[in-house]
Design a protein around this nucleic acid. Structure first.
Lengths: 342, 342
DNA sequence: CTGAAAGCGCTTACAG
DNA sequence: CTGAAAGCGCTTACAG
């Protein structure tokens, strides 16, 4: 395959300057419609499909590429229902605005990725970033929007995790005799399933799961119930397999909880499956709540009690904020969905 | 925010040539370890995080970006379980090989996307492409791999859809008195749910669902059963909502089928839900089979009878083929999973 | 092992 | 409305 034809080549063949070819593609107002049409159709004939991406980007300083920086590996994110909904919303708005989507993970800082960080015109950070990319990208001074976390006065999009979880706990807890447990992810950086220690409780991170936990505790406290650290299970990731392990841990212990507040529907549904295997009836023997209200939660026979957040709308909003240059902190509404499992 | 520091700037400050700075980042063998370390640490101090992406790409002719060209919108693809698994596998291998992932949809041909098509070093096409991007990209002469379709001698990765479906039909059909229906997507280009006409049957496209249908018909024929076009429902997309409409269509007709062969687990699970709403017992009143063996299929109480394909492995294989420059046609193994719904 | 210099393909002010 | 020319930031053969 020989080298592709360039703007200079087609300009010479058509008999105009390169500026005219460039303008035909980029600035229609700079030349007559007739000339523009002629140039464009000649280009098509010659197999020139428009300015070379890297050259244009170098010269103009723009790429029309938006980076979505995920706080976990891409691979994991594709398996997470809420991440998929968010990406759905983002990709819609980007497509509507002729932007390309580059997916990166802040868990990676290879040379190649560091280099690629200079490509996008803007960034959407989804979830608290892990590695060094966040600082590097901030120093680039390009537009950024943060989702599910806040950083100084960067525009951000969040959910009222604390409030929603407080309300949910109040709705799900009957009286002070309830034994309440919690399963959530990312309380710690540990990559194993484990109970929290008393000490862990004094070191909350910026992860949203801590806001949720504090919400649960506040709601529980309102009902006269204390959620002890021993009954709070940390998962590395929002994965069914991990959640099943956590559920077994809780449901086979001497003092079996009769209510498990889960930080996601994925976890809650896994708990329901384990309960079924152990012949525990829901909600008679065990009550379970989720978070997110993913589609599968609505398919469950009992109907999962959970908190709805609109992932697609959240993605759309985040992308819109970036493209419109919004500079404020915004909230996405959430809604309690009280169904059969509590 | 002032302009970012360039290679030229740091070279002057450190007191070496730009070539040395470039080599420190790109070709470690071209200078002594000591000098390289000094250059790198000075760069870090100065806030120079490496060569500018577009400039490097323009000069070197490489971008280290791989494009995954989806046959549907990004938005839809993020909602499809198999697409997500494929992306999971691809993203793993790309990360391992320091490649960035750019997601595009062949349904789009905006100027911005056409321009961006010149950026990647290689392409993975997932599913039969829709618009004009395929031809344009082929003319670029860059490495391509096709997944779930074949084009001339481009390297491809496929599944034996025909064989698997033939076997599945043989396993699921009991005798020639069975009334068999099929629900699948993309038989036609119509964006509505509809029964196929006799005429439609004579115009198979290159979509994999046609191979599957022909496999079903062959297996059925082996059992003395004919699947009539009226009992074959076309869905626009592999979506639960559409599948539920199709299921209602079939289950409420006068001659109710007692076996529905579905082209995906998403469809099959939707059929099971509708059957339950209609108080039909599975498998006594209705048998159902799927395709893919997604995680949810294993969660279903009855255990869905389906065909397993390893989406993550498929993605890994496709990415590996692209990066290693494989030029052959390859197959991913599939496996019948006979469980409770047939 | 290091440096001076050409040029990748384009966009954009500027002169006409 | 059009064209000549500078230069975006880098990589790479080449000379030393």
């Amino acid at each position: 395959m020989e080298k592709a034809i360039s703007q200079k080549d087609v300009a010479k063949i058509i008999g105009v300057s390169t500026a005219t070819v460039s303008n035909a593609f980029n600035r229609p107002d700079q030349l007559s419609t007739e000339l523009r049409q002629r140039v464009l159709s000649e280009c098509a004939k010659l197999g020139y499909s428009g300015p070379h991406f890297a050259a244009r980007s170098l010269r103009s300083g723009r790429s029309d590429v938006v980076c979505v920086m995920l706080s976990d590996t891409l691979s994991y994110s594709f398996s997470d229902p809420m991440a998929n909904l968010l990406l759905e919303g983002i990709s819609d708005v980007l497509a509507e605005n002729q932007k390309q989507m580059l997916l990166m993970s802040s868990t990676i800082s290879s040379d190649a990725q560091i280099r690629a960080e200079t490509l996008p015109d803007g960034f959407i950070f989804y979830g608290t970033p892990r590695g060094s990319s966040f600082d590097r990208i901030l120093s680039l001074g390009k537009p950024c929007v943060t989702v599910d976390f806040t950083y100084k006065n960067l525009p951000s999009l969040n959910v009222d995790n604390y409030g929603a979880c407080c309300e949910l706990a109040k709705a799900a807890i009957r009286d002070k005799n309830d034994l309440v447990a919690v399963i959530g992810m990312r309380f710690l950086t540990a990559s194993i399933v484990k109970r929290l220690s008393k000490q862990d409780m004094s070191l909350p991170s910026k992860e949203i799961t801590w806001s949720r936990l504090l919400g649960f505790k506040a709601g529980a406290s309102d009902k006269g119930v204390d959620i002890v650290s021993d009954n709070i299970i940390h998962l590395h990731r929002n994965k069914p397999k991990e959640a099943e392990i956590a559920a077994r841990l809780l449901l086979m212990q001497e003092q079996r909880p009769n209510l498990i507040l889960c930080m996601s529907d994925v976890i809650a549904l896994a708990v329901c499956r384990v309960a079924q295997q152990l012949n525990l009836r829901i909600p008679e023997d065990l009550r379970v709540t989720g978070f997110d209200d993913i589609e599968e939660a609505r398919h469950a026979k009992e109907g999962l009690t959970t908190v709805f957040q609109n992932g697609i709308e959240k993605g759309r909003e985040a992308a819109t904020m970036l493209l419109e240059g919004v500079t404020e902190h915004r909230k996405v509404p959430v809604e309690l969905r009280l169904r059969g499992t509590h």
